[in-house]
Simulated scan of single mutants.
Amino acid sequence: MHPHLEATIPAGRPVNPVSGTNWEGTGVQPDIPCPTADAPERAHAPAVARLAG
């Protein structure tokens, strides 16, 4: 390898402090359940409302 090139391999993994598991292969449950196709529209209004204060 070149003297100014370094390769690293991460050795950590995220762990949920409540369940002791991670979300690999299961995903994260949405705050607003809806069909995938509707998600951008359903998420936009609450995001704008929160930003508006």
Rank of each mutant, 00 (worst) to 15 (best):
V28F: 10
L51M: 03
P30E: 03
I9V: 13
M1F: 14
P10W: 08
G27H: 04
D38W: 09
A7H: 09
H44V: 06
N16K: 08
A52K: 13
G27A: 11
P33V: 15
P35K: 10
A52L: 10
P35N: 14
N22M: 01
A39G: 04
G20D: 00
P14M: 04
M1G: 15
I32T: 11
E41F: 15
A37R: 11
L5W: 07
P14T: 09
T36H: 10
V15H: 05
G25C: 12
P3M: 04
P30G: 06
A45C: 07
W23A: 15
G20Q: 05
A43H: 02
R42Q: 05
H4T: 15
T8G: 12
N22G: 04
P30W: 00
R50S: 05
L51K: 07
G25V: 09
A52P: 00
G25F: 08
A49C: 00
M1W: 12
E24Q: 11
N22I: 03
G20I: 05
N16V: 04
E24M: 07
A37H: 13
A49K: 03
L5G: 10
A7N: 06
P10L: 08
A39C: 03
I32V: 15
N22S: 07
G53E: 03
A43N: 03
A43T: 00
C34F: 01
D38M: 14
A47D: 01
R42Y: 03
A11S: 11
S19F: 08
V48D: 01
V18E: 15
P33Y: 02
I9F: 13
I9L: 06
E6M: 15
A45K: 14
V15P: 01
C34P: 00
T26P: 01
R42S: 06
M1V: 14
P33E: 05
V48H: 02
P46F: 01
R13T: 15
M1L: 14
D38E: 15
G20R: 10
D31Q: 12
C34N: 06
P35L: 15
E24S: 13
E6A: 14
I32D: 04
L51C: 05
W23D: 08
D38V: 09
A39M: 12
T8I: 07
T26G: 04
P30Y: 01
R13W: 06
H2I: 10
H4C: 11
G27S: 05
P40F: 06
G53Q: 07
P46K: 05
V18P: 08
E41G: 15
T8A: 13
P46A: 02
V28N: 08
A52W: 01
P40R: 08
E6D: 07
C34E: 05
H4S: 15
P3D: 01
L5I: 15
T8N: 05
A43R: 02
L51G: 05
I32R: 06
G53R: 00
H44T: 14
R42W: 01
V18Y: 09
T26V: 12
H44F: 02
R50F: 04
G53P: 01
V15L: 13
V15Q: 02
A11P: 07
D31W: 10
G12W: 04
P40D: 03
S19H: 12
P33W: 06
A11Y: 06
N16L: 06
H44M: 07
A49D: 02
A49M: 01
P35S: 13
A7S: 14
A37I: 12
